[in-house]
Measured scan of single mutants.
Amino acid sequence: MDVFMKGLSKAKEGVVAAAEKTKQGVAEAAGKTKEGVLYVGSKTKEGVVHGVATVAEKTKEQVTNVGGAVVTGVTAVAQKTVEGAGSIAAATGFVKKDQLGKNEEGAPQEGILEDMPVDPDNEAYEMPSEEGYQDYEPEA
């Protein structure tokens, strides 16, 4: 019985440690998101679009440190934060509304985080759909 109880105690310690790591990862992701939003706020009209992409990228980098179902929630929060940063930029006159959601080359930025393969159960990952990809044929 002692062996059984000791095993359960060790398992509990492992769960607590994993929860603490997840909590730490979420806190880091939130900190990076805040950094990115402050970065966007300090940019001029020309830099705002690039700044919004930076927020998304920093958040995406930190999301990889967070495991399990938390990833889905962090990704949703990050996307809403990026959308909010863009709205703030438009409201303050840093950028025109028609410039939001495009990178410096004018290509749409939507789907940055949505296409990231995420499995809350950590069982399997699927690649994003290939609808947006084109076949590449090298020139002879």
Rank of each mutant, 00 (worst) to 15 (best):
M1K: 00
D2M: 05
D2Q: 12
V3Y: 04
F4R: 00
M5F: 01
K6M: 07
S9H: 09
S9W: 15
S9I: 12
S9L: 10
S9C: 07
A11V: 15
K12H: 13
V16E: 04
T22W: 15
K23V: 05
K23Q: 07
Q24L: 08
Q24T: 15
A27P: 00
E28L: 07
A29T: 05
G31M: 15
T33R: 01
Y39Q: 03
G41K: 02
G41F: 09
S42Y: 10
K43Y: 12
K43N: 02
T44R: 01
T44S: 11
K45A: 10
G47T: 15
G47K: 07
V49E: 03
H50T: 13
H50N: 07
G51Q: 09
G51C: 15
K60C: 07
E61D: 03
E61L: 08
N65P: 02
N65Y: 12
V66Q: 01
V66R: 04
G67W: 09
G67N: 04
G68K: 10
V70F: 04
V70N: 01
T72V: 05
T72Q: 11
T75Q: 13
Q79N: 07
K80Y: 14
T81C: 09
T81G: 05
V82T: 06
E83S: 10
E83L: 04
G84T: 13
G86F: 14
G86T: 10
G86Q: 14
S87M: 13
S87I: 14
S87K: 05
A90D: 06
G93Q: 04
V95G: 08
Q99N: 11
E105V: 08
P108H: 08
E110R: 09
L113T: 09
D115C: 06
V118P: 13
D119Y: 03
P120W: 05
P120S: 08
N122Q: 08
E123K: 08
A124M: 14
A124V: 13
P128A: 09
S129E: 09
S129Q: 07
S129V: 08
E131S: 13
E131F: 05
Y133L: 12
Y133M: 09
Q134N: 08
D135S: 03
Y136I: 09
E137R: 10
E137C: 07
P138D: 06
P138S: 10
A140S: 10
A140E: 07
